[in-house]
Design a protein around this nucleic acid. Structure first.
Lengths: 180, 180
DNA sequence: CTCGACACTATGAATTTCATATCTTCGCTG
DNA sequence: CAGCGAAGATATGAAATTCATAGTGTCGAG
């Protein structure tokens, strides 16, 4: 027990087939993104990814079984957990960064500034989208970067969190909706 | 008509949500992998990805609508097309490379040699999994690399192609199956 | 002792994907 | 020119997945 792997992409030498077998879907990727951003609680993951609770629960279970995520109890007596990436999960950072670069370059209205600014820790310069350091003149390894969300994106995330809580409240309380 | 975009991940600043809206599924990624490897015909894509024909047709349609893939007629009179990546599609290479690195490092029995060997075009050295050039001592940009499939992987792919054709032949001909 | 927060789980409907078969248009063979 | 096979799909109904919505259990606050 412990051997899991919903064997998709096994039986091939192609590493990409293996990878997509574990994280080849939208929700897994968004969850890993959130965990890399430092979120760890169920609720926050749900609010920021937009997944349904059952989808999130199922994916977290699978990610844990595949060794990307660890569940830590931070409260015993109503059982409460936080979710953290394992080293295996954390090493998905380059994939996330590559998706970021592509998304910024090809999927957004041009001229819009990136959601996250990345910096070269060694010299403090802001990195270009492709990971080059304008000061050092070369590509920077992901382990040498740190990121900071833009004002606009931070606000979007705060709004999402707030809306999620509201939604919750509305669904629970049988009182009249405050709309209009 | 013409405006497509199955708007998932719009309405956010997050570039990763945008990216996964377009390529956030297993089949799209595997198709892009094949196109990057130089395959262009429907049949080859189907054989190497393992997608059903309808899945492949649907995904190619969507990838075309989203501007990742172009369809070129190479025959008029039985309409025959080949599929090629656009620049937008080709720029997914870093994502594929990141998935490759992760898959090789975390999803395969250790010690197994990579399915593809990558080389630094400028100096000819074989690159490490993480993209470092042992000769030049830094990370190499994806535009400066070239890859070559290992013997074993080339064989696997050839076998897959052969099996696919056999399968076809078997399904079409109403003669007795040659099994046993 | 009621209420709300949190982390889920349950349920049935809607959507997606799958396996399998079929279609179309050609070129070739006899 | 009838028949066959290849290539590139489309059709169909069953199986699996995902969704929206609602509910469960446990706790602390009031």
């Amino acid at each position: 027990m412990g051997a899991s792997e919903h064997d998709i992409g096994d039986d091939t030498l192609c590493p990409i087939a293996h990878s997509t077998g574990l994280v080849g879907d939208r929700w897994s990727i968004l969850i890993v993104r959130e965990l890399l951003l430092g979120q760890s609680r169920f609720q926050d993951l749900q609010a920021q990814t937009g997944a349904t609770s059952q989808m999130l629960a199922a994916r977290l279970k699978r990610l844990e079984a595949d060794g990307l995520v660890e569940r830590h109890a931070y409260l015993e007596r109503p059982p409460r957990h936080e979710y953290r990436l394992t080293p295996k999960g954390r090493h998905l950072m380059p994939v996330i960064l590559a998706l970021r670069t592509w998304g910024e370059q090809w999927c957004k209205p041009q001229g819009q500034q990136p959601a996250t600014r990345m910096f070269h820790r060694a010299c403090g310069s802001e990195l270009e989208l492709d990971g080059k350091c304008p000061a050092c003149g070369g590509l920077v390894a992901w382990t040498e970067m740190s990121g900071q969300p833009s004002q606009a994106w931070a606000e979007e995330r705060a709004r999402r969190a707030a809306e999620f809580t509201d939604h919750r409240r509305a669904a629970t309380s049988p009182s009249a909706e405050p709309e209009q």
